[in-house]
């Protein structure tokens, strides 16, 4: 089972490689990937340096071109695929069928992985991408229970990668319109959920307020942990009560489920967080490397070390972790 770590910049890529990642994933500095944030990601020189650093040490590099191009911007996506092919990356993570077709036509040597943004939740959907574009791997969205995941993995024509750790949202990846609704921009086409230019944090007598395009998203009392200012993690007045009506600001942590994921044949564990710093990547990569190694050595006797869980807890959004949808008995 592989460990796939995020790299939003060159130092993060290096620490991921140095601390046990089997593969790292990255993006270019534009809207062709779903972490299009100010100052994040790789320019051409840094991309070349990073890819060399990783590949020389036996770590593979995946590049995300996983947004959905709109008609006016299409040349940027072509250019990104061409650049990826020239850089010699190990796989392209994509979601849009036009981008996949372009890659198949112009850079057939590129390995394609279906992005989580593709929102494929069944073996049939994965098979479609395999039959038409020859994808080599699929990253599944975080909406499946373990039972459902097992069904997809067993019937999928390609290896399956799932998220093991990181921030959670409502997880309708590739289809969520909440950010568009408030700001006009979304991860799907612009590459950023709740773009920073629309975000305001204000200290007020009633607490720390986060606003998205002037809409109040949340108000945190003193000492209360904050989260990313996305609409899905906002607090709403519903039937006279104020609370998290859609999603709580929590992080996914599947470490305890590792033996089950391993047994069902999941090929890779993906860590979320290209927007986080090199410290986060180092902490999380170190802990997950140790956990995956321990689990592979002795799956039936595997128990997460409390010290590992403490590290993961401390870097989590909202400082709470959950199994997400993996433990939903009704699904």
């Amino acid at each position: 089972m592989e460990l796939v770590c995020p790299a939003g910049n060159l130092p993060s890529l290096k620490v991921a490689v140095d601390h046990g990642a089997d593969a790292v994933y990255m993006g270019f500095r534009d809207d062709t990937n779903a972490r299009h944030f100010a100052g994040l990601n790789f320019n051409d020189k840094r991309a070349r340096d990073g890819i060399r650093y990783a590949q020389e040490r036996g770590t593979r590099v995946f590049l995300a071109i996983n947004t959905y191009p709109q008609p006016a911007g299409w040349p940027r996506w072509e250019e990104a695929v061409d650049k990826a092919a020239n850089l010699g990356i190990d796989a392209l993570i994509c979601a849009d069928i036009g981008v996949m077709q372009y890659a198949c036509d112009h850079a057939p040597q590129l390995n394609l992985h279906l992005s989580v943004q593709g929102s494929a939740t069944s073996a049939e959907a994965v098979s479609f991408y395999h039959d038409h574009f020859g994808i080599k791997r699929a990253v599944l969205p975080r909406v499946l229970s373990l039972k459902q995941l097992r069904r997809v993995v067993s019937a999928s024509p390609v290896p399956i990668e799932v998220f093991g750790f990181g921030s959670l949202c409502v997880m309708v990846e590739g289809r969520c319109l909440l950010s568009s609704y408030v700001t006009g921009q979304s991860p799907n086409t612009y590459g950023a959920c709740s773009p920073a230019s629309a975000v305001r944090w204000d200290k007020t007598p009633r607490g720390l307020e986060s606003r998205l395009n002037e809409v109040l998203i949340d108000r945190y009392a003193d000492g209360e942990n904050a989260g990313y200012p996305t609409l899905c993690k906002g607090r709403f007045h519903v039937h006279g009560k104020t609370g998290y009506a859609i999603e709580e600001p929590v992080s996914l942590n599947t470490m305890e489920l590792l033996p089950e994921l391993l047994a069902m044949g999941v090929a890779a564990i993906k860590i979320e967080g290209r927007q986080r710093s090199p410290v986060y990547v180092e902490q999380v990569a170190t802990v997950w490397r140790a956990a995956i190694d321990a689990c592979q050595k002795n799956p039936s006797g595997f128990h997460p070390d409390p010290a590992w869980q403490q590290v993961l807890q401390s870097v989590s959004e909202g400082a709470q972790t959950t199994f997400g949808a993996y433990h939903r008995p009704w699904q």
């Binding site: 910049n9 100010a38 100052g39 994040l40 920073a196 305001r200 944090w201 720390l208 942990n225």
Partner: peptide
Amino acid sequence: FFQRRITTEGDTELGLYLKNFLDS
């Protein structure tokens, strides 16, 4: 930031630029 040990006010994008510059 999640733990409320650092607070930012004003232009969030500027803060993100600075953070990502330092991280890189």
